[in-house]
Each structure stands twice: as structure tokens, then as C-alpha cells.
Computed example of a mutant assay.
Amino acid sequence: MKVEVWSDIVCPWCYIGKRRLENALAGFEHAGEVEVEWRSFQLDPEYPRGAGRPVYSHLAEKTGGSVEQVRAMTDRVKALAAEEGLAYDFERSIVVNTFDAHRLTHLAKAHGLGGQLHERLMRANLIEGERVDDADTLVRLAEEVGVPAAEAHRVLAGDEYAKDVEADIREAHLLGANGVPFFVLDRKYGVAGAQPVEAFETALRTAYQAA
């Protein structure tokens, strides 16, 4: 059985959804027969490449609210993340264009490390305050999970895997996803958003029985 997950690296709900899926799989008796594949998506594809802004300032401008209002709004997300063992640090998180980071996840996928790099990049951005559009940072993070540094440098210096990222995003829209996280089980069942663990458990059982 295959679970495809469309997700963006800077998306706090995506990381929460990732943990909830993993928790559901941990209690699923057929988890060994489930393949999870991470797909690319950009929440804000128009965000300028090379630009970076603190998340509170970015959200305040986007919503028209104050930084204090945004901080209060994101406290709920932080609390939900904490329940999943994720210590979000929005004070340090930087909003960036994630296209190059996603290109690198496709290189990692070619090495069988797509899930590992997706996890590492999310942690870097949402918890550690790293800029996941900086080439040297991306190479270092990729190398940490086993992606050869020379290959990562080569990919980031050109446009390799750009079409793969674009194809993932296009496919998500064709499947009806306007946001992420978006989970598709065996191309038959969809779970939109960071649903409770129970919802993933039900979806896994349903898809497995159908398969």
C-alpha cells in the first residue's frame, strides 16, 4: 500500500500532520507493507527567491494584523505541535521560497532518503531557525541524512529536478489539493489537513482492506 504526502517544508501544519501519520502507522499492524512517499508543494510559490523574513513579520503583513496578534494566533499551533513532540520556535523561523529545497528532496529521493531529508528540513526551519533557501545550509542538512555533498552542490547550482517539483505541484492540484498537508492512499482515498491520529488510522485500515 502506498501513501503519498504533498507537503511544504515551511508549513507548520505539515509537520504536525507528518507526526500524526507516523503515530497512526506505529499502531497499524500492516505498517511494514506501507510505503510513504513525500511529494513537493509550495504554499507561497510567488514568494521571492532569495528573500527571507521573520515569520511573525511576514504573517502580520499578510493578515493585516499586528505582530502581537499573529503571535497569539500561532500560539495554538505551537501548542498542538508540542503535543506531537515538536518544539516550534516561530521567533526564529524564517519564511523563504522553498523551490530549491524541494529540488534537493528529489535528489534525496533518488538515494532513498526523501523522507529523511523532508524531516530534516522541516526541523531545521520550524524548530532550529535555519534558512532553508541558503545553498550551504541545504548542502549541510542534506549531507547529514546521507546525501553526497558534491551532488547536492551540483543540483543547487543548476536547475535539476525543477520539472519534478513542478510536476508534483501540478499533480496535487489535479487531485484537488489547494493546500497541504494532503495525503493520498493508493490513489483512492484522500486525507486533507493535519487530521487527528484516529482519522489516519481509519484511512489506513480502509485502504488496506480495499487493497
Score class of each variant (00 low, 15 high):
residue 1 M to G: 09
residue 4 E to R: 13
residue 4 E to L: 08
residue 5 V to W: 07
residue 7 S to A: 13
residue 8 D to C: 00
residue 10 V to N: 00
residue 11 C to M: 02
residue 13 W to H: 12
residue 21 L to M: 12
residue 24 A to K: 08
residue 30 H to I: 03
residue 32 G to H: 06
residue 34 V to P: 07
residue 36 V to D: 11
residue 37 E to V: 15
residue 37 E to A: 13
residue 40 S to T: 05
residue 41 F to I: 06
residue 41 F to R: 07
residue 44 D to Q: 04
residue 46 E to Y: 09
residue 48 P to S: 00
residue 48 P to F: 00
residue 49 R to V: 13
residue 49 R to A: 14
residue 49 R to M: 14
residue 51 A to W: 03
residue 52 G to V: 07
residue 54 P to A: 11
residue 54 P to G: 15
residue 56 Y to G: 06
residue 57 S to Q: 15
residue 57 S to G: 14
residue 57 S to N: 14
residue 58 H to W: 14
residue 58 H to R: 11
residue 59 L to M: 13
residue 61 E to I: 05
residue 65 G to W: 06
residue 65 G to N: 08
residue 70 V to I: 05
residue 72 A to Y: 03
residue 74 T to Q: 12
residue 74 T to G: 01
residue 76 R to D: 13
residue 77 V to L: 03
residue 79 A to M: 10
residue 80 L to R: 11
residue 80 L to S: 12
residue 83 E to Q: 13
residue 89 D to C: 09
residue 91 E to D: 15
residue 91 E to R: 09
residue 94 I to L: 08
residue 94 I to A: 05
residue 96 V to E: 02
residue 99 F to G: 06
residue 100 D to L: 07
residue 100 D to F: 06
residue 101 A to G: 13
residue 103 R to F: 09
residue 104 L to G: 13
residue 104 L to D: 10
residue 105 T to W: 06
residue 106 H to K: 14
residue 107 L to S: 04
residue 108 A to L: 11
residue 110 A to M: 10
residue 110 A to W: 07
residue 111 H to W: 09
residue 111 H to V: 03
residue 123 R to H: 08
residue 123 R to D: 04
residue 124 A to P: 07
residue 125 N to E: 04
residue 126 L to K: 00
residue 126 L to W: 00
residue 127 I to V: 15
residue 128 E to C: 04
residue 128 E to K: 11
residue 131 R to P: 03
residue 132 V to M: 01
residue 132 V to H: 03
residue 135 A to M: 12
residue 135 A to I: 12
residue 136 D to I: 09
residue 141 L to E: 02
residue 141 L to I: 07
residue 141 L to N: 02
residue 145 V to N: 10
residue 146 G to Q: 07
residue 147 V to N: 05
residue 148 P to Q: 08
residue 150 A to W: 02
residue 152 A to L: 08
residue 154 R to K: 10
residue 154 R to W: 01
residue 155 V to A: 11
residue 156 L to A: 01
residue 156 L to Y: 00
residue 157 A to Y: 01
residue 157 A to M: 01
residue 158 G to T: 12
residue 160 E to A: 15
residue 161 Y to W: 13
residue 163 K to H: 14
residue 166 E to F: 10
residue 169 I to H: 07
residue 170 R to P: 01
residue 171 E to W: 06
residue 176 G to W: 04
residue 178 N to H: 14
residue 179 G to I: 01
residue 184 V to P: 02
residue 194 A to K: 04
residue 198 E to L: 03
residue 200 F to T: 04
residue 203 A to K: 08
residue 204 L to R: 01
residue 204 L to D: 00
residue 204 L to Q: 01
residue 210 A to L: 15
residue 211 A to Q: 15
